[in-house]
Nucleic acid binder design. Structure first.
Length: 550
RNA sequence: GGCUAAUUGGUCAAGCGGUUAAGACGCCGCCCUCUCACGGCGGAAACAGGGGUUCGAUUCCCCUAUUAGCUACCA
């Protein structure tokens, strides 16, 4: 077989050689230990928590040592393409403080485009150049098998309990003569280009995965498809060419790719490329409510997987990042607590500290992190964040909430415990936050979340006395002393010690009295300091609320 | 079915042949306290099962179970 002739027949328009591209995309000049990573999504227009999780890993690996993190779009499957997807990806990652250094979306004339193009559909000339070279070496061949023929083969393989696939004796088109190929080509029969695998089922390859350690897998023996019928490469072929030419040093990808590592291993070797380091990550998991089992988070079933879900509820992006970091590197949490003042990007991220198995997404933990991180912010920072969120998702309420800036800041100071020895940790996410102190804004429509435990007469007596003795200029301690007086006069203990010593002597204690007022004023039994609340809402609103209850 | 990987409390996880098997979240109790939150103290809670190897296995090997992934002209 004259392979050179076959190569020319298959790729008459290819004039470049691999050498051309090798010298065009030269080795990057980077500091020692600097890694080149990439995010390589298909442009489906959907980016989820799992994507963010691995993008963050990529970004940290590249940026901790001054490397490069770029965006490549794997648009080889045309069915999945959605317009505007690239912008969406860039914007979404930016929202979570992850920036690309080069790649798709950057100005085409800039240096940030030096290893492009970054859209695989625009790289077919490159793929064809390498494909032609493979054919010329007898390492790839056209396959004219139809879908039906392939199905039939698979069926017999299944029946005979043999390994399914296109390999060895089943690789019918391997045996085609030049004349047969020419005839098929002349007849315009559609074909795919397949790898002529050199692997042997008895041998195995070993390589070191940066996360999982040493991996042994059988050699690839399948004559996998390199170029699809339309001339577009499959993931495997594109991966080898692109990551080599773009000089990627670390490929971080989902664990589902581990099984095809032998294919990539063979491809890199046949193509004469140096293999990148692989880091196969575990997926984020969740408990399946139907089966009770652990399973991969899925786009279709799990709304909380969508990043929009978190944006809509108003989770602060920084908190999300901190949470993802704790999942990504098990020692991050400890570091973050120890060096609370340091920028989290200073954390010495290490690939081998990454999880080997899939972590369950834990909302409780996320909430805990939100509380902690939000409590470290200033009231102004929280204000700005809430303002932005409300503008995007609650435009009508926003007018009410932010009509009086000073009032909102006072509320935030109250709820954050600004000025206290220790901060409160009440704030979790925007939606929850506004719910928390909605009573400041809903006027007469206020709904009681909690109801009085004492009977109506007692409530009436307490509130009446409270209103009588109330003086808006009283400071916190005078105000509270008056509450104690009310307690005493109605048979409640004003002194907790006395109450605990002999509770049977009293109807209750000051806390019961305070609770009545608290519920009357705020509609809820649990709030921060009541005196401060009253002073933020003003005497008029307080009186109005109590009068309404009375 | 075949191949591969994983398996420490409810969850996230330290651990790398000898430990009273860390820590965090959640839960429970106590303290502080006008409620809540914060904070402090304490508690319940784990090496999937069975065989080896070894003086000694959570740690190494094998088998079983379970879970996940792959088994496309999808990525």
């Amino acid at each position: 077989m004259n392979y050179n002739k076959l190569a020319d027949m298959l790729f008459p328009n290819v004039t470049n050689t691999p050498e051309f591209y090798e010298s065009k995309f030269i080795q990057r000049k980077l500091p020692n230990n600097a890694q080149v990573t990439r995010m390589a999504p298909s442009p489906t227009g959907f980016i989820h928590l799992g994507n963010l999780y691995s993008a963050l890993a990529d970004e940290r690996i590249a940026h901790k040592n001054g490397g490069v993190f770029y965006l490549r779009i794997e648009d080889t499957d045309e069915k999945r393409k959605v317009d505007g997807a690239v912008e969406l990806i860039i914007d979404t990652l930016r929202y979570f403080d992850i920036e690309f250094d080069e790649g798709a979306g950057f100005d085409e004339n800039e240096e940030t485009n030096a290893y492009g193009p970054y859209f695989q559909r625009q790289r077919v000339d490159i793929y064809h150049t390498y494909a032609k070279n493979l054919v010329a070496k007898g390492l790839a061949y056209p396959c004219f098998c139809t879908e039906e023929e392939l199905d039939a083969v698979r069926k017999t393989q299944e029946e005979q309990k043999e390994l399914t696939g296109y390999y060895g004796k089943y690789a019918a088109c391997r045996e085609l003569t030049m004349e047969e190929i020419e005839a098929n080509l002349l007849a315009k029969k559609p074909y795919v280009l397949r790898l002529c695998s050199q692997g042997s089922p008895e041998k195995e390859i070993t390589f070191v995965d940066a996360i999982k350690g040493e991996i042994k897998l059988p050699e690839n023996i399948h004559d996998i498809v390199l170029l699809k019928r339309d001339g577009i490469p499959t993931y495997h072929f594109a991966h080898a060419i692109d990551d080599h030419l773009m000089r990627t040093t670390v490929v971080v990808r989902g664990g589902e790719w581990l099984a095809s590592a032998p294919i990539h291993y063979e491809l890199f070797h046949l193509l004469g490329f140096k293999m990148p380091k692989y880091a196969h990550t575990a997926h984020l998991m969740k408990i399946d409510e139907e089966t009770g089992g652990k399973r991969k988070l899925s786009k279709r079933k799990d709304p909380e997987l969508s990043l929009d879900y978190y944006k809509k509820d108003g989770y602060h992006p920084y908190c999300m990042k901190v949470y993802l970091m704790t999942l990504l590197n098990s020692n991050f949490e400890e570091w973050h607590e120890k060096f609370a003042d340091k920028d989290i990007n200073e954390f010495p991220f290490s690939i081998d500290k990454m999880n080997q198995s899939g972590a369950l997404f834990d909302k409780d933990k996320l909430h805990n992190i939100c509380k902690n991180e939000l409590s470290k912010l200033s009231e102004n920072e929280v204000y700005d964040f809430l303002y932005q969120w409300a503008s995007d998702y609650e435009p009508t309420n926003k007018e009410i909430w932010f009509a009086d800036k000073e009032k909102m800041l006072s509320i935030l100071r109250l709820y954050m415990g600004v000025g206290m020895k220790r901060r409160r940790k009440d704030l979790v996410y925007a939606k929850q936050i506004f719910e928390l102190f909605s009573y400041f804004f809903d006027g007469s429509k206020m709904q009681e979340k909690d109801s009085f435990k004492l009977d109506i007469d007692e409530v009436h007596a307490i509130l009446t006395k409270y209103l009588e003795s109330y003086n808006h200029t009283d400071d916190n301690s005078i105000w509270f002393n008056k509450l104690k007086d009310i307690a005493d006069s109605l048979g409640y203990a004003s002194d907790m010690k006395a109450y605990k010593a002999s509770p049977e002597k009293f109807k209750g204690n000051v806390s019961d009295v305070a609770e009545v007022i608290r519920i009357a004023v705020t509609g809820r039994a649990n709030t921060p300091d009541l005196w401060t609340i009253v002073h933020i809402m003003g005497e008029a609103q307080m009186r109005e609320r109590i009068e309404t209850v009375l």
